[in-house]
């Protein structure tokens, strides 16, 4: 296939390997549980819905009493134990879910436009700003989408859907020539 002709979308899709994940549930209104978790994590937990904090780990808001901690695969086991211990006195749940998630990085000037083919969120850089995340649908899979700079998004997807999602992304990023209006 000739590479002449209109350009393909400017987008690069990669898998971030070596990642570990913890699912964390606690009641933010109950005692000092949040603060106890923050001491172990070494960073603030996002309190606002659909935001994340980035530090040594990324901590994503999943629900009013649920978070996803993304960290290094090597660190996840110890971090999980430390969190479980620190939260021992609270009603909390810490689960290692490293095997259950795949993290993808989507970068490029057309990244958001390609994502918009399969996502009903408003991904305009003014609307979906760095620090925001959202659980939503992409293609026909459920994903966690997080905004980096205007040309970068992180996608966390359940492992069993990751093959489908990578095929979907590759397909959506493929066609050349079609006018891709900036969102």
């Amino acid at each position: 296939m000739s590479e002449a002709g209109p350009p393909r979308p400017r987008i690069a899709i990669s898998v971030r390997s070596g990642r570990g994940f913890l699912n964390l549930r606690l009641n933010p209104r109950r005692g000092q549980a949040l603060e106890a978790a923050e001491r172990i994590l070494g960073q603030p937990m996002p309190r606002a819905a659909n935001t994340f904090t980035a530090g040594e780990n990324e901590v994503y808001w999943l629900g009013p009493d649920e978070w996803l901690v993304a960290t290094g695969a090597k660190r996840v086991s110890a971090l999980g134990s430390e969190l479980a211990e620190a939260l021992g006195g609270f009603h909390a749940a810490v689960n290692d879910v490293s095997g259950g998630h795949v993290e993808l990085l989507v970068r490029g000037a057309d990244a958001r436009t390609v994502l918009a083919k399969g996502c009903t969120l408003d991904l305009h850089p003014r609307e979906f700003v760095p620090g925001q995340c959202a659980q939503t649908g992409l293609g026909r899979a459920a994903v966690l989408l997080a905004a980096g700079d205007p040309s970068t998004c992180t996608i966390v997807v359940r492992r069993s859907f990751s093959g489908y999602l990578r095929r979907w992304l590759a397909y959506a990023a493929r066609p050349r020539g079609a006018r891709l209006p900036a969102l």
Binding site: A49, N50, G63, P64, T120, L121, A134, Q135, T136, G137
Partner: peptide, 11 residues
């Protein structure tokens, strides 16, 4: 009530 307005397909 937590996430704001979203498309029906999410529900």
């Amino acid at each position: 009530p937590w996430c704001g307005p979203r498309a029906e397909t999410e529900f």
